[in-house]
Design a binder for these strands. Structure first.
Length: 848
RNA sequence: GCGGGCGUGAUGGAAUGGUAGACAUACCAGACUUAAAAUCUGUUGGGGCGUGUCCCCGUGCGGGUUCGAGUCCCGCCGCCCGCACCA
């Protein structure tokens, strides 16, 4: 071979790794274990650059850990249930199962050429009956433990996908997948009791030191803990059973400014009143119709319906407040009833103005401030305000202090009690879909809901289904649902709902530790491999997947499927950025945008010479046609080039822009490294003491910086160092022995990023065995510091000159030399310096 | 509205409070070549003259702390992300 040929090299070395079986993980042994996992892909059929970046990062970690003497687990699988398979079946015919397994085969074939250090023997798809059968077993155990239950609830119904969605899957009132406006329906559904663990899921966030603060914060906000007062208003002329209206408030300090009570149209009292009040029924119906999108809510007028009823203020039974049914009160949060304090909430203020209700301030910005407010006075959180109707007498207090005082006052006077509430709702898992894990229960007319017997698992999805009509094919299957009751043997019906696909991905990491176990997990294997030491994936899973997984890890502990040590599933989390690309656009004759693929654009022009408009980089998407296919890049340059490029340039947590020029440059560099190494392999230059020493120093600095970079997700910085080391090696006058040593080290340092080229270099230079298994080089601390160093000399904090001094020269001597320099002498003008700061090895600063 | 993050050359970006712009891209110049490609070498934040191991300015804007601030603090401006009729 006379030049770098990725195609030849990569296939060979992949085979060599396979033959040696070096990525096959076995529990046990003396080495410390290391479990690195990237979020497994949905088998859409094609890998994209985002996958390449994600899996390359994981691979760098995995290979580095392998080389540093760890027993590494690095598995891969498929998040294979879900809507797209059914949509494909509806659109192009065929069966979701065939579509999915076909896609998995295609994607596996596209992924293999990347040369990832994956233990493919552990591969599974969540749609394998062996996997979802164990998930059903897990479900039954959770059912027994009271972690899953059934209830009648108002749910989010996606009219396009014709299924229920979890709260987490509704974004701005629209289905996360279909984008359709979500409707409210009342259905009997299965729920995971995640809200029972709210406090634990919240407080344990503090232990996740190696998670991005942003993700922890997002989860904290999602769990939404609040402290407030729950109390009741007494209702005058109450219908039976409604003499007390429960209210929850986080601002009990404003209770003396209350001027009305507002209840949700879905509040039991409102529903009761509807029967006798037609106008109210009409009002409520209209409220329910309104959309829940951000825009709709923004525009929607805050409206109320005066029920004519009144409540008594808890502090003064003679003080009566009107009761409204209002369109802005949610039944889902708190108690479905709120008191309005117009003085300190703009919405309540507007409401009060509209319905001519009193505006009573409880506090003011200062003692001098006017009590007549032109708008609501919302106090700053941390600054004290002047309470005129407070609970600690008239006082300057922060809202925080006042709230505590109010709760204490109310509790002491028997008006309600302080309570903690969470925003987190239970996770509805029922989906009215075919391509998901069947919920293993049976409905019996006499026994009710009966869990399946474990020996009947897996409850397999039937193959003979059709998708010619919308809805759930399981529901209309002629025989599948007809079963006998596991308890009494009478004719019964199988549950036709399947599980939310987020269930599948909530425990797969645990299954990887023993993918063929006859139970969901094997405790010994789980004990050995868990927790995942490093998890890598997109920030888009910050809430849903990661919160559900944290819940499942706990649930699996309770049901005995994970050891006590595995409370949190993921010890460290890294969220990587996206791969973006410029968008190329022209306009058609009606002025509508037409997008063009990057490969069709050269120098800003199409093949026919038409200029394209270049729109700034954005996430690669089919609709904008700014997609670069990894397969094309691997064919043209090889996997190592693609891997090198996605790691260079941008820090891994940020987006990286894919450019043709950048990919080409990456390839040029790899070719250069190959050339330099082959020259070194062929040369027999004599030793050159000084140059040899200089090169070895460079080498040890590179070892240090690359090791640090790889360990701290500073891949771009590690690569920058490798560029510099390569340049130093190319320029060096060292003898061939020293050069060979340096080149071998270069191969080792490059091996996590460009494993195939690294093996080739290693082999070419006479390295022993596989570089993948060679012990990672260790930097010699003595070689990291030069004997003489260049110290910058500042005058009044500005760099003016520099001095060469021995590395270990005492401070006072360094100071003398610095003061003797021309620049300092000039600045001193014969006088004495006011102060001299010498930071050893860093800098000298002379203050004149 | 609430919460968080970011702002550095033409571009992506580097910089434990210690030489701002590493490394790469792009551009320009040179070597090799009949020529191009490939390869190699060099220059490139702005300005000034006195062309120097020179001086001034420079990390969104304004202030502060410090011997020293891209980095820490306060206040603005801009962009991005998350949450949101949450009581």
């Amino acid at each position: 071979m006379s030049r770098y040929s990725a195609a030849e090299i990569e296939a060979n070395w992949q085979k060599a790794w396979d033959d040696a079986g070096i990525f096959c993980a076995k529990a046990g042994g003396d080495k410390p274990k290391y479990y690195v996992l990237e979020m497994f892909p949905y088998p859409s059929g094609r890998i994209h650059m985002g996958h390449v970046r994600n899996y390359t990062m994981g691979d760098v970690i995995a290979r580095h850990k392998l080389a540093t003497g760890h027993n590494v687990l690095h598995p891969m699988g498929w998040d294979a249930f879900g809507m797209p398979a059914e949509n494909a079946a509806m659109a192009i015919g065929g069966h979701p199962k065939e579509w999915t397994y076909g896609n998995i085969a295609d994607m596996r074939a596209q992924m293999k050429p990347l040369g990832l250090s994956i233990d493919w023997s552990r591969e599974f798809a969540t749609c394998d009956p062996e996997y979802y059968g164990q998930q059903q077993a897990l479900f039954l155990d959770m059912l027994e433990a009271g972690l899953v239950y059934r209830k009648n609830a108002v749910v989010n119904w996606d009219p396009v996908d014709m299924t229920v969605l979890a709260n987490e899957q509704v974004e701005n009132g629209k289905g996360w997948r279909s984008g359709a406006e979500v409707e409210r329906r009342e259905l009997t559904q299965w729920f995971f009791a995640i809200s029972e663990m709210a406090e634990e899921l919240l407080s344990a966030l503090d232990t996740l030191d190696n998670w991005p603060a942003k993700v922890r914060l997002m989860q904290e906000n999602w769990i939404g803990k609040s402290r407030g007062l729950q109390f009741a208003f007494g209702l005058n002329d109450a219908p039976e059973g409604f003499d007390r209206i429960e209210v929850y408030t986080t601002r009990p300090d404003t209770l003396r400014g209350a001027s009305f009570l507002a209840i949700s149209p879905d509040h039991p009292l409102a529903k009761r009143l509807e029967h006798e009040d037609e106008a109210l029924a009409g009002f409520s119906a209209e409220c329910r119709k309104g959309g829940t999108t951000e825009e709709a809510l923004e525009k929607a007028e805050k409206r109320g319906y005066d029920t004519g009823l009144t409540v008594r203020h808890p502090f003064d039974t003679a003080w009566e407040l009107p009761v409204y049914v209002a369109n802005f009160v949610l039944m889902e949060y708190g108690t479905g009833a709120v008191f309005g304090c117009p003085a300190h909430d703009q919405r309540d203020f507007d409401f009060a103005v509209k319905y001519e209700l009193p505006i009573i301030p409880t506090f003011l910005p200062s003692e001098e401030a006017d009590e007549d407010l032109a708008e609501a006075f919302v106090p700053p959180k941390t600054q004290p305000v002047y309470y005129i109707r407070g609970f600690a007498g008239e006082a300057h207090q922060t809202a925080h202090e006042a709230i505590d005082a109010a709760i204490a006052f109310c509790e002491a006077n028997g008006v309600g009690q302080g309570v903690t509430k969470f925003r987190l709702r239970d996770w509805g898992l029922s989906r009215q879909r075919y391509w998901g894990c069947p919920i293993p229960v049976v409905h019996c007319d006499t026994c009710g809901v009966v869990p399946e017997r474990k020996e009947n698992l897996p409850i397999r999805l039937p193959d003979d289904v059709s998708f010619d009509v919308p809805g759930n094919p399981l529901d209309r299957h002629p025989t599948w649902r007809n079963v006998s009751c596991p308890k009494c043997g009478a004719a019964a019906r199988r549950e036709t709902d399947t599980m939310d696909t987020f269930v599948d991905s909530s425990w797969y990491y645990a299954r990887f530790t023993a993918p063929h176990a006859e139970t969901p997990t094997d405790l010994a294997d789980a004990e050995y491999w868990m927790n995942v030491d490093q998890y890598i994936g997109g920030i888009e899973h910050a809430i849903l997947h990661l919160l559900y997984s944290r819940f499942f890890a706990r649930a699996m502990q309770i049901t005995g499927h994970l050891p006590k040590s595995a409370v949190e599933p993921f010890d460290a989390l890294f969220t990587q950025g996206m791969v973006t690309h410029e968008i190329y656009q022209t306009k058609d004759d009606r002025g509508r945008p037409v997008y063009h693929l990057p490969e069709d654009v050269t120098g800003g022009k199409l093949a026919d010479g038409t200029e394209v408009e270049i729109i700034p980089s954005a996430k690669m998407s089919k609709s904008k046609k700014n997609v670069v296919d990894p397969i094309g890049i691997i064919d043209a340059y090889g996997a190592d080039t693609a891997r090198w490029f996605v790691l260079s340039d941008s820090p891994p947590e940020r987006d990286v822009e894919w450019t043709a020029a950048g990919a080409e440059a990456a390839h040029k560099h790899l070719a250069r490294v190959w050339r330099i190494a082959s020259e070194i392999a062929a040369s027999d230059a004599p030793e050159a003491a000084e140059a040899d020493e200089a090169l070895l120093r460079e080498m040890h600095k590179a070892i240090h910086d690359v090791s640090t970079g790889v360990e701290s997700f500073g891949f771009n910085a590690a690569i920058a160092r490798l560029y510099a080391f390569t340049a130093a090696l190319a320029k060096s006058d060292a003898g061939s022995a020293a050069k060979r040593e340096a080149a071998c080290t270069l191969a080792q340092l490059m091996s996590p990023m460009t494993p195939h080229l690294a093996e080739e270099l290693w082999h070419m230079l006479g390295g022993d065995g596989l570089v993948a298994m060679a012990p990672w080089p260790v930097a010699d601390a003595a070689m990291l510091v030069d004997d003489t160093i260049t110290l910058p000399v500042q005058i009044n904090g500005k760099r003016r000159t520099e001095i060469e001094v021995p590395q270990d020269m005492p401070k006072d001597e360094v100071e003398k030399i610095a003061l003797a320099t021309d620049a300092v002498q000039r600045a001193l003008e014969g006088g004495q310096p006011k102060k001299v700061i010498v930071v050893p090895g860093r800098i000298v600063n002379v203050v004149v």
